[in-house]
Write a protein that binds this DNA or RNA. Structure first.
Lengths: 199, 199, 199, 199
DNA sequence: AATGAATGAGATTTCATTCAT
DNA sequence: CATGAATGAAATCTCATTCAT
């Protein structure tokens, strides 16, 4: 009935996008319906399709935004800066904090984006590819500096990514808050020295 | 259509269960339809419902079977047995091998079972709880033997779980085979000594 | 698994028929399933079809049995017997008692048998036809004896049938027991003298 | 298929409601399918569910409308108006006419609404309760005026209700038109003076 | 640009009936 | 005869998308 005030195209688009993110986080991609989204955004159903061609498309845009938010958290390691361990530890804290801050995003990223369809899998693949490359480059740099031990940097990167993701995933699964400091500390220690007692 | 000959309840049930597992792995829980399952099993639609009350129910059974298969892979570390590093490495290989053997299972476990509904989340939570406890106990034992460094064993366990899961997840995402030996080697090295070069 | 002892064809048939009557009374024709019936009868599903060609057919037989039970309740009015009012009153009591004794049958007759399909409607039509004819004949006899006032005996019979049915129906609807005596008394008084106070 | 032009919510709703009433009357609640209804209404299947949440729900609305239509037919007896017998006779004619006018409604009310489920039974129970109370009040008034003979007014009301319903039911069962005048006449005579010849 | 009524393919599930054992 | 596994047509209901207003 009552017609929404005209908004700039970008504002309206953002309004729908935000609503979609909240809905996807709350209900999951498959269970969420366009109806849920337009109700959350308080626009008419047709309006949605004026801005996005399909449910799948708006989800892709939501995903892309998440990628950006998480990927921008860590800062490049600088050889000339603080001592390297501190930089690594700080980056881990930054990552965990970014993930903890956006619990809804996390849920989408870890739970909803997987197994959607092959196109979504490719989006996700590209995301992790970028993440892995980044870690891999850091490891390779470390190896060439003699800081990091020899080994398959790619496989190592994959394991390291797991060190970051899993505690977040477990917290999400249990719907508990992520204990950022404790987890960052253990992750750092593991990465740095493994589980062994000092020799 | 030609009618299938009657089969013993157990055989038919298993046939449908296997088909369901393949279909869930290929298409994902939400996208898979009962039609897909009965076509894969080559039975009539009604036959499915003679054995399982719902799509959700058959998925629960599939999931439970996966839990068992994966959880039974590692063997307890024995202090009096082979040297401990070898036992740990062997367990990692066992786990990766179990997961690699059943690529379809892996997809379901890592991607499809997450965020389905609260009941599935609880199943999954219990599964990971068991896994974490197991790792945690091993770590605590190691600590009391002076082998493992001090620290929050729970958080450490969570990170270690990630070390195992992530390479498998990445392989699944890219639909590539898991390089079991290489990954096991890196995972072991990471767990044992971290990423640092020997000091 | 365990196979029922062989029974004579008639006994087995009766066993199924009784079960069907109970089930139809409890659940209603449409909601009742063959599964309900065979479980109630404790026979296999196939056995049912050895005795009755269809769900509809067994229902027809159940109905027929009810017809008999109810139709045999009243006794013919005899001009040479007790005084006629007593005979009429006695018949009303007999009818109400028969209906009250078989609550389940009543439910089927009044609620389930109507609107099933055109074939069932014809069965039901024949039943009421017989009932109406009987009442009509009694009324015509009464008219020729000068006992019953003039009028359309058929329409009168229809109204009288309603006098009998409705209290039973109301009791059924409320799932209350039928107060046989009180209802019979009022029905008799109504039939005999209407609602007017004596002039 | 050519798409129906958008209609106001109320118009479309009414269109579907009317179609549903016709279909329920023709086929019966259980046998009627949503498909029948949407074909009768000439709308798409989804359109039905835009207006009613379920088959059961649209039936409840149909039923409620019938209750209103039938319950509003008789007019209160006024002591200071025409002579009372005329008023009673007129009310009977009004009732029969209302029922005869809407044969479809009648079928639903008398046949389809009974024994559907406990909720429908309660609706029906309330409807008859209102009807019975109305008749009972009239009888009690008549008794206090010395017009109506003594007796259990409630039981009497129940019998009277049967006098009204049964001829309608019989006509419906035979799919014959209701002979309104003849039936009203006999019903009135029965109610007023019973079946006895004048003494 | 915004609206929301209309659409229909397709999903899950039921259950009367058949038939090999 | 008795059994119960197997069947598939058909039912209800969902929801992404279209399009007249």
């Amino acid at each position: 009935m009552s017609r929404n005030l005209p908004l700039s195209r970008d504002e309206r688009r953002q309004q729908i996008l935000d609503a979609a993110r909240r809905v996807f986080a709350r209900r999951g991609y498959h269970v969420a319906s366009i109806d849920d989204v337009v109700k959350e955004a308080e626009v008419a159903r047709g309006t949605f399709y004026n801005y996005f061609p399909s449910k799948r498309a708006v989800f892709a845009v939501v995903l892309e935004a998440l990628f950006e938010a998480v990927a921008s958290a860590p800062e490049p390691i600088r050889v000339d800066g603080d001592d390297i361990p501190s930089q690594v530890r700080a980056n881990l804290v930054r990552m965990y904090r970014a993930l903890a801050e956006h619990q809804d995003l996390t849920r989408i990223l870890l739970a909803e984006a997987v197994g959607l369809d092959s196109e979504a899998d490719e989006d996700l693949g590209r995301f992790y590819e970028r993440a892995l490359e980044r870690v891999e480059r850091a490891l390779l740099a470390g190896q060439s500096l003699g800081l990091v031990r020899a080994g398959d940097a790619r496989a190592m990167a994959s394991c390291l990514l797991g060190v970051i993701k899993e505690p977040v995933f477990q917290a999400m699964l249990r719907r508990e808050p992520l204990p950022v400091e404790a987890v960052a500390e253990e992750a750092f220690a593991l990465v740095w020295t493994g589980v062994l007692a000092a020799r």
